[in-house]
Design a protein around this nucleic acid. Structure first.
Lengths: 216, 216
DNA sequence: GCATATTTGTCCGTATGTATA
DNA sequence: CTATACATACGGACAAATATG
């Protein structure tokens, strides 16, 4: 007990961070039963600390709890994905104006597209998916609202969870690399109208692809 | 233990509900130190359960924790209020179109205005404030996005916390009763453009009033 | 359908570190 | 600086619900 590899501040938050990352990386698959005793011994913390971490993750939508049955990595439904895209269609266009008026923001969007392209060249498709999500989160962030940014963080974390429930990561992310580049370039060029319509059709297409991947 | 005053399901959630309501009602004022031991004995639950409830409320933004000093009812800052209104200016206009196209939704908005008017006649100004928040939340809800709705619920809960930090509830809410009625009527009439500009000036004015109330 | 083992939900006592009087 | 009060985290315990054979 005396020595602990983790700093002594907010142990439950740290446990939640570990689980959050493992879920995001696909190591803990959707539907997996997270046993309290197993995790507490594995991480070297008390069972109660694990329970606190669970509660944090439940609030973030990464974990679900069933009465007296335990905690499970969340399985996203088709309805969840539909709602996520409904929300995206409302939120993301809000960021086009601000980023079109600020070349620094628009340039940052293109940088993210470039990093996605690098990952694609190496065939790291899950990384491409992450970069794609990062691009759209950056778009929302250009609204400069801390609360909207926090919400979009959670929104895209849930969407990533849906990605993990589909099989072929390449088919899921490759088509949207160039589409994202087009959107970013239209924003940099200040063509707000074209960027908006391009974004709208992107979202329609992407939603269909994700749902198809989950059904198949 | 055998008997327990609270039902045995989700005790932490129930404790959180109790605290949430007491905070919303102003019984637990912003800045108040929430002592674990005091609450655990008062509510007849263990300190661990209280801690879990705290963690839920921290995630909702109702409570803040300071390192090794404990949990406190959140005190909203001027910057918080600015960000809340920045978010409102982005989110609320999204609901005007949908509610203008659906007479049922628009009618519901006017019903809320009416209930606020009844509360005002009885001088229940805090209730007027709650109804005013309900109106704007209903506006966002007309976007029919579950996630956007959840976020707006949290957003308006935070704003209510800011309301509690101002002195005069009447001065804070009375001017906006008629303003809200005007907005709701413009939406019902289908005059989207006027509703948008009226909402925009409402938000500007309301932000100024809240911040003035917090400063004074 | 039933008995047993497992797991969760809850609580207690306690040790340790930290901030305040 | 000491003392007190408190938060943090741990281990152990038990009842209730669930899963398993």
């Amino acid at each position: 007990m005396g020595l602990d590899p983790l700093q002594r501040s907010r142990t439950a938050e740290q446990v939640a961070s570990v689980l959050r990352r493992r879920i995001a990386d696909g190591l803990l698959e959707p539907g997996l039963w997270l046993k309290e005793d197993e995790l507490s011994t594995a991480l070297g913390v008390s069972r109660h600390t694990v329970r606190e971490a669970f509660q944090l993750l439940v609030h973030e939508g990464m974990v679900v709890r069933a009465q007296h049955r335990g905690a499970f990595v969340r399985e996203m439904s088709i309805d969840d994905v539909s709602d996520i895209f409904r929300t995206r269609r409302l939120m993301e266009p809000l960021g086009i104006g601000p980023s079109a008026r600020d070349k620094v923001l628009a340039g940052a969007l293109l940088d993210i597209v470039d990093s996605a392209a690098v990952a694609a060249e190496h065939g790291r498709w899950r990384e491409v998916g992450t970069a794609n999500l990062d691009l759209h989160r950056a778009l929302v962030r250009s609204c400069r609202s801390a609360r909207l940014d926090r919400m979009s963080g959670q929104l895209f974390a849930e969407l990533r969870l849906a990605f993990l429930m589909t099989g072929d990561a390449q088919a899921l992310h490759e088509p949207y690399l160039e589409w994202n580049r087009r959107i970013a370039e239209l924003i940099l060029a200040g063509d707000v109208g074209s960027a908006e319509s391009e974004l709208a059709s992107y979202l329609t297409d992407s939603e269909r692809t994700v749902i198809a991947g989950m059904s198949g």
